Computed example of a mutant assay.
Amino acid sequence: MNKIARKLSRTSAFHLPGMALAVVIAAAIPGASSADEADAKNLLKKMSDFLAAQKALSFSYDADLEVVTNDNQKLALANSGSVSLTRPDKIRATRHGGFANMEMVFDGKTATLLGKNANAYVQVETPGSVDHLVNELRDKYNRPVPAADLLLTDVYGELMADVTNVKDLGSGVIGGTECDYLAFRAKDVDWQIWIAQGEHPYPCRYVITSKQVAHSPQYSITFRDWKSGDGVAAQDYSFSAPANARKVDLKELAESDELPKNFVIGGKK
């Protein structure tokens, strides 16, 4: 969780013109009882165990990364994509937004990032599991996989590492699915998760709020079309370069980052 906080903390200010107003509504929420806290932890652990037990899974998503301009305007960079995963060491992920159209594929040995707009690709040798790949791309190359925290084999351990406060806020409905609504506080971030009720407790929405950046920008991701086991379409995790595609260094593939190159990163609050 602190890894995501570091990424959010770098997106604090950008040189852009002001364009819109924002409305913030504050609500007083009572503290959770010990029973509610235990229930929330149990629901999160149930989700974690369910995801870890799936040898194959896939989903589509819509995500927003908020940034704050140097004149204190919040903007949200929206993108959509899909993820297919076969444990322990295969994954294919896409991310398509207004500034980039990316695909990442990992065959257990080599991770390939393809910038479809630039028709250019990068390859990194990083043999190992999906867990290893997620950590390498996020920590070493600053190229996080969409919903990375939720793809690891121990989601509960990753998310709960720095948590100081837990709330069970009842239920909510995401995309027509009734969910358990949980909220957590950690040193650098607050985060919320909505988990589908029933025998398939997959995450429906995940929201992270930075506490280290002025105006508390958020990263949010909403999931749809979850499939697991035999419901996952067969995937080819090998990479075949498109016609005339160029192999380049990572620094040359600007669209692999979630932030467009014309955004200038400012400081923390």
Results as ranks from 00 to 15, higher is better:
Met1Phe: 11
Met1Glu: 10
Ile4Leu: 15
Arg6His: 12
Ser9Phe: 09
Ser12Tyr: 06
Ala22Cys: 11
Val23Leu: 14
Val24Lys: 12
Ala26Cys: 09
Ala38Gly: 09
Lys41Ser: 05
Lys41Glu: 06
Ser48His: 03
Asp49Glu: 15
Ala53Asn: 13
Ala53Thr: 05
Gln54His: 11
Ala56Gly: 08
Asp62Arg: 04
Asn70Gly: 02
Asn72Trp: 13
Lys74Tyr: 08
Ser80Leu: 04
Ser80Ile: 07
Ile91Asn: 03
Met102Gly: 02
Asp107Ile: 04
Lys109Leu: 02
Leu113Pro: 06
Ala120Asn: 03
Val122Glu: 13
Gln123Phe: 06
Val130Phe: 06
Val130Cys: 10
Val130Asp: 08
Asp131Val: 02
Leu133Arg: 04
Lys140Gln: 14
Lys140Ala: 14
Tyr141Val: 09
Val145Pro: 07
Ala147Ser: 10
Leu152Met: 10
Leu159Glu: 01
Asp162Pro: 01
Val163Tyr: 11
Val166Asp: 03
Leu169Ala: 04
Gly170Thr: 06
Gly175Pro: 06
Gly176Asp: 02
Thr177Ser: 11
Tyr181Asn: 05
Asp190His: 09
Gln192Tyr: 15
Ile195Arg: 00
His200Ser: 10
Tyr202Ala: 15
Thr209Lys: 00
Ser210Ala: 05
Gln212Ile: 11
Thr222Trp: 03
Lys227Arg: 09
Gly231Asp: 13
Gly231Ser: 11
Ala233Cys: 02
Phe239Pro: 00
Lys247Val: 03
Glu252Ser: 12
Leu253His: 04
Leu253Cys: 11
Ala254Met: 07
Ser256Phe: 04
Lys261Arg: 14
Lys261Asn: 08
Asn262Cys: 05
Asn262Lys: 04
Phe263Asp: 10
Val264Ala: 06
